[in-house]
Design a protein around this nucleic acid. Structure first.
Lengths: 214, 214, 214, 214
DNA sequence: AATGAATGAGAGTTCATTCAT
DNA sequence: GATGAATGAACTCTCATTCAT
């Protein structure tokens, strides 16, 4: 947990620090990311940064958590605004498009998503990935349940498999356009939000048999 | 590319170096992995290590490539030995089981798979992931084509989507049992090869509608 | 000298601070002991601690002095309670036993004794050791004089030498049981109060010729 | 143990490092002594210093040991040169005078003696004091045995007590003249070698009854 | 008077790489 | 070609103290 000093800090300063940390960790990951770079960009002395957070891990964990929370809130808002009367398949396309747009508009959050996902150090990853996944799951699972209850998903679909796939695809759609070497098949790398749209449609259509009724 | 000295080296020495590097990079990743640890374990001076490879990146890239090649060869051998007369779904289960077993038996290769997949640094990842994926693709794609030609995969299935999914699942099955926080749904983490089997069957069955004919 | 604020403080708070400081300095010595640890344990902000004492040295000196004073009072009380009619040698054994017991029961005071004795920094040690020694001397010297006047110590004994020896032995008996490497000959390290008794008797007996009459 | 690099180093360089370390540790002790100061004085980069010794403790332990060894050799030489035909008391005075002279001429060694003796940290002190004492003991004990066998020490003297006293006195004579607050009785502080002589004589004479025959 | 915040200096240690032999 | 040595830059983290409120 951050120190009490951190929580008493004014919002602007907090934001400067969090942004700097997102940028650094998002670019270089936890172990290679450097506290001094963060402090430099936040325009505070390194020692001050370490009065806000007891150590590097604590800062990383805090920023991860913060990002997750904000991502989740925003995505819940966006998904909540979608049209529930359309067919499931179209709705799913909309969800992924919202996600793709959000990620495009939020490079820092995207970076942290990558950093959390890619951390190798067990201790650090432990702090992060489980939480992240839980956040995503708490969006995905209730949604699927809703559609299933409405009879718009085939009754014999395996929920766990669907959820697992969804988690994978969210990560894929978030990262593949920005990190090369991830998607060698659909060619997402380097594509704009608009260009991603048909690929998303292709993906969802391809997965259609998994859920489409009748 | 490694120096000419490297290629003139006797096999045993080369193996010692590659093994040490796999262990180190596989455990700590590229940026956190240390050349001195590798040199120490390979029982050569650090300076000698850097006569074999011009710098850290080169060593990493070489080892990644080497691992990929060996993994591919071994997997081609194993998949080639499977029964082609059984239903596609059963065959697919067999493939993933072979993969799961191979990964379990080769911790060093598994570590490098993780290291390659998780590297954040663009420069380094570029060297690695594309190659890795190409290796996998060259196993997966011809196989799928074969089954499709044999009429055992529904004609309207989207090959690209299937391939993308396959790539994702191979990574998932390889890493989720060994790194926590990756699979929060199926609970693969910590499972033995035997315990993974039913989960693999569940996954393939869940994906059944994607390819099953009729 | 502590600030005026310090002296206006309520007793409980003062005690908390002194105890925390004793524990910290007694464990780590002056230069390695940390003000923030002391403040933490005393449950006051570091800045408040430095309103009580102008700097670290001042706090250390104060605590040393405080400890000395209390040690001296207690030892005077204890020694005053001993039987003056027994032979000098027996009385001396009693004195060292009381001391050994007191030290065993007061780990904080023991720690500070060690810290004062072992400080290397000239500036700091100067503040401390002279005072400490004076306290001890003011117990030892009058006692020896008393016994000498009573004719129970040989007339030709060199008082200065006896006193010097006494000082050394008090320190030895206080520290050797708790810090290894101090006593390699008698094996005091790790001994309980009861186990120390025979060693003390051995020491006093061995020194017997120095003072025993006739 | 120092690294192999250290042992292959030329003598001059080694001496520069050891001297710098003696000066620093001897002045400030282990925990307060700084590697960068040592490196600075030895005119090598700090990183080079840490290629000779794996860490601070190792350097400290090495220097302590080195000092002990040299001190012991020199003292064995000096004591061996003394006249064995004089009375024990005179011989003892000579020994302490040699010691006092040696310490006066070797400020660096004196400092390290103090540093070893005064280290509070258990881990570090463990490395040092026991060894130091053993070195001293291996000079003192055989000597006492020799004199006792020659019948020049009273048969009923307690050897252990004599040895313990000797160890204390060697330390006292070594440090009291240079660190104030140690000797408040005999006034050794600040005295030259010549001025120390009569005090030594007084000490030995005062202890006379402990060993003098008849 | 109390106290939270800020801070520069410095600590020990690791590292990839270069250089000289 | 093999290798020991050197090295500067960077790292995280701690500390006693000062300042502003």
């Amino acid at each position: 947990m951050p120190t009490s000093t951190w929580f008493r800090l004014n919002v602007a300063q907090r934001e400067r620090v969090v942004n700097a940390a997102m940028r650094e960790f998002g670019t270089h990951g936890f172990s290679t990311g450097s506290l001094s770079s963060i402090a430099l960009e936040a325009e505070i002395p390194e020692s001050v940064l370490l009065r806000y957070f007891n150590d590097k891990q604590e800062l990383f964990a805090y920023v991860c958590d913060d990002v997750c929370r904000r991502v989740r809130e925003e995505m819940e808002r966006r998904v909540g605004g979608l049209d529930f009367d359309q067919p499931f398949e179209d709705w799913l396309v909309d969800v992924f498009c919202e996600w793709s747009e959000f990620i495009a508009d939020h490079p820092l959050e995207r970076g942290m998503t990558a950093a959390g996902t890619h951390e190798l150090d067990t201790g650090v990853r432990g702090l992060v990935r489980e939480t992240t996944n839980q956040h995503y799951l708490q969006i995905i699972e209730p949604m699927l349940q809703l559609w299933r209850d409405a009879g718009k998903i085939r009754a014999d679909a395996d929920s766990q498999v669907l959820t697992t796939l969804a988690l994978m695809l969210f990560q894929h759609v978030a990262l593949a356009p920005y990190y090369d070497g991830i998607d060698s098949v659909l060619g997402l790398y380097g594509q704009s939000v608009e260009e991603q749209r048909p690929v998303i449609r292709q993906l969802v259509a391809g997965l259609g048999p998994l859920f489409s009724v009748g």
